[in-house]
Design a binder for these strands. Structure first.
Lengths: 164, 164
DNA sequence: ATTTATGCAAACGTTTTGCATGTGT
DNA sequence: ACACATGCAAAACGTTTGCATAAAT
């Protein structure tokens, strides 16, 4: 589940990889997914989707570079607009991992939260209900309720870096 | 403890207001605090400190505006450098509340976390040990340990906005 | 006298936008 | 034909930096 952020190649940890698989194949299926979401399946979007499908958490810049490597020309603004469209359609997830830039990942259907290693940037996913006890405590302590649709990013130290 | 972010005037919730009180008075004491921290007590820094002392969570821009309103001329870069110096000295706290810009507050000695209302931006503080059970669960689930010095920002809905 | 901070202006990195051209339906 | 997506260039945003001047020690 973890992901050394320097080499952005974590495998598909979670199921729900229908979109992932389709996007990776890049064929008919991915186009259908886009169309079903009300988005025109342009080559650029298919490329972005494929990049997302193969790379856990990526920055816009990484998507740009990889897309260029894969398909040749594609513009910054196109990447940003594609990511925006995919996120709006629920196909991608934009997360502020706290590094001053947004990170994107393929939406895999299940809501989750993140722990980010502050040394190496590795990311682990947390099942949503890990927050339930916390939500209770927060509510009694402050009156605030945790947003049911909000994503939490926890700062941590991964097993590899926590060599104590 | 909460703070309607549009009107940035929450009172000193916590004790440890020695620095706060001194900064607010802006007299000898605040200068002494700065000097003790190895910082030269310039008018600009005193002003920034006073702004922090009177305004829960502020952005650099708000500090700039308020400082100008209070003392006349002060530059953007000076504000940023003052905030940086204060944070390095442990007198201020820089927190990424997730709004695309940093927020600063006077350090009041006790580590804490934040819940931010996603509707109105109000902020509540959470005592550090509210995370202990979560830390355990995160550790068993992922192997990650929560950074003991890391700050957590939780998305939530404040009592006022959660009018359900 | 020496060190450190300031103001100004210019740069930075990330993201957004206006607009003409090109592409999918 | 039409709506929509793209590329390009330029701007926006928050923040940082280089450098000469000014103020604190």
């Amino acid at each position: 589940v973890t992901e050394p952020s320097t080499s952005h190649h974590d495998r598909d940890a979670a199921p729900g990889g229908a979109i992932a698989a389709a996007a990776r194949r890049g064929g008919e299926d991915a186009a259908a997914v886009l169309r079903r979401a009300g988005l025109r399946p342009t080559p650029q979007r298919l490329t972005v989707l494929r990049v997302l499908a193969s790379h856990g958490h990526v920055t816009a810049d990484e998507v740009l570079e990889e897309s260029r490597a894969a398909t040749g020309v594609i513009d910054q603004s196109t990447v940003y607009r594609a990511l925006e469209a995919l996120a709006a359609a629920g196909l991608a997830l934009a997360t502020d991992l706290g590094a001053g830039r947004m990170h994107y990942e393929l939406a895999r259907g299940h809501r989750h939260h993140h722990v980010v290693c502050r040394r190496c940037g590795a990311v682990a996913h947390l099942h949503d209900d890990i927050l339930i006890p916390l939500a209770l405590r927060v509510a009694t302590a402050t009156g605030f309720r945790l947003s049911p649709d909000g994503e939490v990013v926890l700062p941590g130290v991964c097993p590899a870096c926590g060599a104590d």
